[in-house]
Design a protein around this nucleic acid. Structure first.
Lengths: 235, 235
DNA sequence: ACGTCTATTGAATACCTGCTCAACAAGCAA
DNA sequence: TTGCTTGTTGAGCAGGTATTCAATAGACGT
């Protein structure tokens, strides 16, 4: 972000190269710079993607219309043309990643037998990068101050819980799992995953082996599978 | 915070009562208002407490010298007199709560037999209010942008881990627990607790029963105690 | 070629924020 | 009382931020 701030600080940092490299009509008194006009949906997606990229390092509620604009090479006014409030942008950005993850999980549940689907789900959660972890955590922290975001976070968490609950129930009905209360088991598993997520976001150097083993242990026990039967071989 | 913002917006909201109730020398051209002078350590503590109160709802990195000042009834300049940078205040505030918790745990470990100490530790963690949970989460989120805070968070997490590790080792040596790797077990337990903490901060209405049971189950298993022997009776 | 539509700019407004500093005054010592 | 120390104020500077809006200029249909 320092580079962004520096750029915005004014004209003092402009070198000859900077001036020469941009079209002549940029200069004062001349017609405005040519805008790279784009189809609305495409631009909208660009903005969301940029916002998410910034949120990776800054956290969701540190996103700024100006920062998004300068990284994208446009003006902050344009950002507000697509998202009237920054809040709208934040919610849209979070909704996109979260629902993408849930959709992916849901699809895995439909295309794989219960055991494989569960393995895939847990594996994806455990391998989720620290960037993604930080987006979730910043969403949790920002939620109390942003009602719309809070609503979206709630929705996505419930959605994720539903996906896992359905999977457990399906596995139980198929006789593969043994879960007396699918919803409760799903919640327990997600709590565990959240805990790992926190660790991931804080200490990327720590050895996760033990922590990951804890997750596999607990999940296997929770769904009534023999220990070691769910986790991948190399773990 | 809305009330604070409104107060700060200017004199437009001043009613007759407001003007009359404060000393006459407040008015323009008159000598300054009498300052309630306080011993430095006391004032310093006041500031930290106020900052923590604000952090409960806003998150640690939304703390503002002006907000702290107005809630405390002083000027933002005074805040900077005690804490040159807001960063200093944030770090001091976090360090205070975190170290208080660790000290409390450490004392419990020294004054109680291992099983009781472990029970007390877990119980305190599980009953930690959502406010406290939010302070930890905001610390995790803000850490990447605040090196000093990151250092403090790291220190406090390691400290908490050490307390638990020592307890497990002591219990093992005393023949009460059976833990092959105390540090690894401590980390696993803390991951679990962090996961619960996230849930607490988000959904205060959800039934925690199952989640708490998961923690007790896992901890008992982790330290080699018979199931149900650690948790309090009513759980 | 021409006109319409709208994506995009640039600039302005109003507010918030961290931080500084000279001046003031509360308490204490002599 | 007098003087000194220092907690405290008030005002100000230099930015940062969300948001608005008239004006501009690509793109596209006719």
């Amino acid at each position: 972000m320092n580079t962004l701030r520096a750029e915005r600080r004014g004209v003092a940092h402009l070198t000859c190269v900077d001036v020469i490299e941009r079209p002549i009509n940029t200069l004062r008194g001349m017609p405005k710079r040519a805008a790279t006009r784009r189809p609305p949906e495409e631009r909208r997606q660009e903005i969301i993607d940029t916002a998410l990229a910034l949120a990776d390092t800054l956290g969701l509620d540190r996103i700024t219309s100006r920062d998004v604009a300068t990284t994208l090479g446009v003006t902050s006014g344009l950002i507000h043309h697509y998202f009237p409030t920054v809040d709208d942008l934040v919610v849209a950005a979070f909704a996109q990643t979260a629902s993408a993850q849930n959709d992916q999980d849901r699809q895995a549940c439909q295309s794989l037998p219960p055991t494989d689907a569960l393995r895939a789900l847990i594996q994806r959660s455990l391998s989720m990068g620290s960037a993604n972890a930080r987006i979730w955590m910043s969403a949790w922290v920002a939620a109390p101050r942003r009602p719309d975001l809070a609503r979206e976070v709630d929705k996505q968490m419930i959605d994720g819980l539903d996906v896992l609950t359905d999977l457990l129930r399906r596995g139980h009905d198929a006789g593969v799992f043994r879960v007396s209360d699918p919803a409760a088991s799903a919640l327990r598993i997600l709590v565990l995953v959240d805990g790992v997520l926190v660790q991931v976001s804080m200490r990327s150097e720590t050895t996760y082996g033990d922590v990951h083993a804890l997750v596999w242990d607990t999940v296997e026990r929770e769904v009534g599978l023999p220990l070691g039967s769910l986790r991948p071989e190399n773990t």
